Amino acid sequence: MFYWVMKRIFLGPVLGLLFRPWVKGLDNVPAEGPAIIASNHLSFSDSIFMPLMVSRPVVFLAKAEYFTGTGLKGRLTALFFRLTNQLPMDRSGGAASAASLDAGMEVLRGGGLLGIYPEGTRSPDGRLYRGKVGVARLALEAGVPVIPVAMIGTDKVQPIGKRLPNIRRIGMIFGEPLDFSRYYGEAEDRLVQRKVTDEIMFELMRLSGQEYVDEYAAVVKLRLAGKQPEPESGGEGGASATG
């Protein structure tokens, strides 16, 4: 909480002056009570810009590798992610991902806002990719609404592989809360998980205007790197803040 307050006081005005973010639908974020904020994922900086616009702290799930680095750089990276309200998330799928989602559940049970990128990793080419079902499991088990958020232009500010950002305007659109109460009690049903996740991804596609690809972004990244994706590399259960 302390870091979030300091970030809004000091970092917020600087980023606001440089990048002049425009925002629509911010009143769709509830003033109190638990909710999931599900966003498309174009850039590492998504997790910096979006929380600055929300009047409540947003806790993100981030890939576990950011918390386990060695050496000075690894320790500083882990410290940064902890200070910015991010929790480690195992994205390998199966039991590991399910266990990691427990941390997100605790945030929701405590009445907080949980930020998730259902694609599980940044888009490799600006398109919107298939969502992982972890977001659906959390929404159904916790009984909370999902607020879809479309980040606009952040991939131009900080493309993958670029450390220093380009100074240009970015935007974000907060959609109306999605109510999945009709599925409460069916959180373990894989067909229901996929249906809920697909509904969330449809809203993200509608809000962002991105082309949708019915394939996992992680699989596409492996292919682009010249690697052969393993059958489980899509990792149905995961969801992540950045990667």
Rank of each mutant, 00 (worst) to 15 (best):
G69L: 00
L114C: 11
L204K: 00
G69A: 01
T68Y: 13
L222W: 05
N28A: 00
G104Q: 14
G12K: 15
S39A: 15
W4M: 06
L138G: 01
R91M: 07
I9S: 10
G131T: 05
G185P: 00
R75F: 02
S45I: 15
G243A: 06
G12Q: 15
K195L: 13
L108Y: 00
P34C: 10
T84W: 15
E211L: 08
M1F: 11
A95M: 10
A35G: 07
L83R: 14
S55W: 12
E141H: 12
L108W: 00
L191F: 12
A225W: 02
Y3V: 14
E211P: 14
I167E: 11
P30H: 13
G185R: 04
V196C: 06
I152H: 12
P118G: 12
L204N: 01
F60Q: 06
A136C: 08
L128A: 07
G235D: 08
R8G: 02
E215W: 10
F174D: 00
P177M: 10
A62Y: 08
E188W: 07
D189G: 03
A35Q: 09
E141V: 09
I167K: 05
M53E: 00
L140F: 04
F10K: 12
A64E: 04
L11A: 15
D189R: 11
I9Q: 12
R223A: 03
A35V: 10
A103Y: 15
V219Y: 12
A78G: 04
H41V: 03
I48R: 13
L15H: 09
A62R: 09
P159T: 04
G238S: 08
K227V: 10
G161V: 03
P148Q: 11
M201I: 08
R91F: 05
F60R: 11
A225S: 02
P34W: 14
A103P: 07
A187H: 13
Y184W: 06
M172L: 13
L42Y: 04
V219F: 12
F2R: 15
P159R: 08
L11W: 13
I48Q: 11
